[in-house]
Design a protein around this nucleic acid. Structure first.
Lengths: 232, 232
DNA sequence: TAGCTGGGTTGATTTATATCAAGAAATGAC
DNA sequence: GTCATTTCTTGATATAAATCAACCCAGCTA
């Protein structure tokens, strides 16, 4: 692994405050892997042998049951995924696949657990990561249970607009097929939901989104910090 | 607070391994409160001033948006709730109300955070609690996104049956109205879902559930550890 | 360049679920 | 114990969303 990669990983909140010796020990067992697109990195139900860190590319977390599949999240660099399984030494609850050519660092889970036990700063950082993740999933559940598919789409677009700088113009970062699955609907239904938002000033041309009147869209979407603010 | 109550709290995994001095300090700021039924203990969006521990009774966690409401979980003694908000010093994402006369211990969040910073055993225990909670919510999301309402009910009944000792006979622990909300459906739809399970050997008379042939119900429910096993 | 492929859209239809309304059963208050 | 309130159930209907089928179109590839 290149020194620049190690520096980037060390800059993650999860590792920033830990003892240097412990971080170095963690990195000694780490290795970087390059994956092509559409490779299944981990599989639901298997033991969590590695904590994964995505350094470049994109990864989809998805779950399957009874021949059905749903997208749970997309993971962007630089961040870790499947921390809870690693810490608990429990099987993965989700599968992961690359959506693009991606570089991923694999940290042996046993090392992570060992160092978690002896490094207080690291274990506190793990807490914050997990608490954050927990709260994100709770928000997600509220979104799913309390909103219709059109409302979910409207709020998703407002969140993305905000992330992109609130200019009213941004590009979708994932395929519509995937977005539909993430939002808990079919691709056909997403197409129709997009059309249903036209009266509220939303147009989506291929991946290019325009929101002409954010306030108008908000009258429909009714965003709330306790679902839609990722830092709340 | 009675010594017996303190002992019971100390026996919780979350507190078991922490320094006695720190536990005592935590308990010094704690106080027990008795609440009648249907009292709102905490409200979504407010700052998390206390970590709550339910000692007797039942508490419902619920969320609201746009005049809609949904049940997120029911909490049984003895356990804590809203740990993530306390640790992150972030607003509550859910509201909580008593479903029965309940005794609840309130620990000032600031004390919890202070001790979390200095007690390594406690912070590790917090990690395990959060990781557990995180995984529970992920399973819940998979249940919601991948299964129909009848499938969710069928699997819920199988889980409850297993918890009650797999005898094929047990009582519902919550009102059907609440169960419906937890499972993401209307009370009317729950009634119909129950009828739809009759051909699979399920009868529910008031709160009394009978599953005459677990294997038969499982052909419909298709339970899987990575959604339905709480210890997985 | 022609043909192929996969994502995306659209329309027709079906299915799942919610809503509305009414009555029955259970529960709690006095 | 009785009355009032709430929960639960059932039937009729409406709505949301999924499915099925056809087609379009951009990007590849042979």
């Amino acid at each position: 692994m290149k020194p620049a990669d190690i520096l980037e990983i060390k800059s993650l909140k999860l590792f920033k405050d830990m003892e240097t010796a412990n971080f170095d020990r963690l990195m000694r067992g780490a290795y970087m892997q390059n994956f092509p697109t559409q490779i299944e990195l981990i599989t639901e139900g298997e033991p969590s042998d590695f904590l994964h860190i995505i350094v470049s590319g994109v990864v989809e977390l998805f779950a399957t049951w009874n021949r059905r599949e749903t997208t749970m999240a997309t993971i962007w660099p630089v961040s870790t995924f499947i921390l809870a399984a690693t810490i608990k030494d429990a099987p993965y609850l989700m599968s992961a696949r690359t959506l693009q050519k991606s570089r991923v660092v694999l940290l042996p889970s046993q090392d992570v657990r060992d160092i978690f036990k002896i490094d207080a700063a690291f274990s506190r950082a793990v807490v914050h990561d997990l608490a954050q993740g927990y709260r994100t999933v709770v928000k997600n559940t509220k979104d799913l249970k309390l909103r219709s598919s059109i409302e979910r789409l409207a709020n998703y677009l407002l969140r993305q607009n905000w992330r992109a700088g609130s200019t009213g113009k941004f590009d979708l970062k994932v395929e519509k097929r995937l977005l539909a699955s993430y939002l808990g609907m079919t691709p056909e239904n997403l197409s129709r939901a997009i059309k249903a938002l036209q009266p509220y000033g939303v147009t989506i041309d291929a991946i290019h989104v325009t929101i002409s009147d954010v306030a108008d869209l908000e009258t429909l979407a009714k965003p709330t910090p306790s679902i839609d603010n990722p830092y709340h």
